[in-house]
Design a protein around this nucleic acid. Structure first.
Lengths: 179, 179
DNA sequence: GAATTCATGTAACTTGTTACATGATTTA
DNA sequence: TAAATCATGTAACAAGTTACATGAATTC
């Protein structure tokens, strides 16, 4: 359900196509709520069935026609209802394949596990760079009153990435101590 | 798929019922890979279809009969194959409702958001206590060669919980500065 | 010449969630 | 006496993933 509300929320800033919404995800909430394009199109369909959003076709010459969605009054009300009610889950849901593999690390060559952890570290360093760039973009947004909140959620992604990185470093250190 | 491998991995330590496996999850990998009982039963079914595990019924008098699963030789090989291959996702997948709500925080009363964040902090403090207790249990396990790895994955959950907690505190501080 | 971007989706499949159903025993 | 624990699942639904299909324009 949260994904639909995320889409509604983004549409409350401006009208967008499914493709635009996907880009917005990738440039802001991806790190805390990733979504596939196919999922977004599907949800837009059901949001339109419920009349929480409307769409119009904007023909283009050189590109495929744009199907532009806008949030309805009903949609705005439902969004605010969701935002104001006390959430069931304060906690994030994490599914962490590397931590799971590490759990079974005694069945793996130490060197192999260390290699995997080093690759994790590289990936996370890139993530941190990407999040820095994203933060810079947000700092230049014309949505002045939103800026702080957008940076808050980005910061959450940042902190999680940092935690993952330092975790991997600590694991490598301990593994090398005992080898 | 990872869930099936997690189940296989746990069964490689000892034979268990679905219910036992659920308890193992809750006492170890829950914070990095949560699972519902119904999911575990379903996966055990398909693992048995593939003959990666076998089961036997152990009748009980006062309790319902136990259906005890054990990993097969084939299952062990498939598990090790999974563990040894380079993972596609080094990164954890996070879906974080509170961070998403915070993204749209400009549409909420500041006091309301602060209240939600404070509840998150309370919940996370409890999580940290629970993880401390879990770590103590793991330190007493007779599985000596596994201990370090089990503590590694627990530590990952711990670090993420800490990150979430300090994030919420920082957000509250900034919100109170600007109000 | 190859890869990326823009732009639409659909279909099939896999996972995750919630509710239902049963029922004795033990602990608070 | 109410709630938790042990122990089995099934069914229905919601959400997430991957593959397929199309195709021009632009950038490397």
């Amino acid at each position: 359900m949260s994904l639909s509300y995320a889409i509604l929320g983004l549409l409350s800033y401006e009208d967008m196509t499914g493709y635009d919404i996907k880009s917005s995800f990738d440039n802001s909430i991806q790190c805390i709520w990733p979504a596939h394009l196919s999922q977004i199109y599907r949800d837009l369909g059901s949001l339109e069935d419920k009349e929480w959003v409307h769409s119009r076709i904007e023909p283009q010459e050189t590109r495929p026609d744009r199907k532009v969605y806008s949030i309805s009054e009903l949609g705005k009300r439902e969004f605010l209802k969701w935002l104001n009610k006390m959430p069931k889950n304060f906690s994030s849901v994490v599914r962490d394949e590397m931590a799971l593999r590490t759990f079974f690390g005694s069945k793996l060559e130490k060197e192999e596990l260390i290699l995997h952890l080093k690759m994790l570290i590289n990936e996370k360093k890139e993530t941190l760079l990407f999040l820095d760039e994203t933060a810079e973009k947000i700092k230049n947004t014309p949505y002045e009153s939103e800026k702080m909140y957008w940076l808050f959620s980005l910061r959450k992604g940042y902190k999680i990435a940092e935690a993952e990185l330092s975790w991997a470093e600590e694991c490598i250190n301990e593994l090398q101590k005992t080898s």
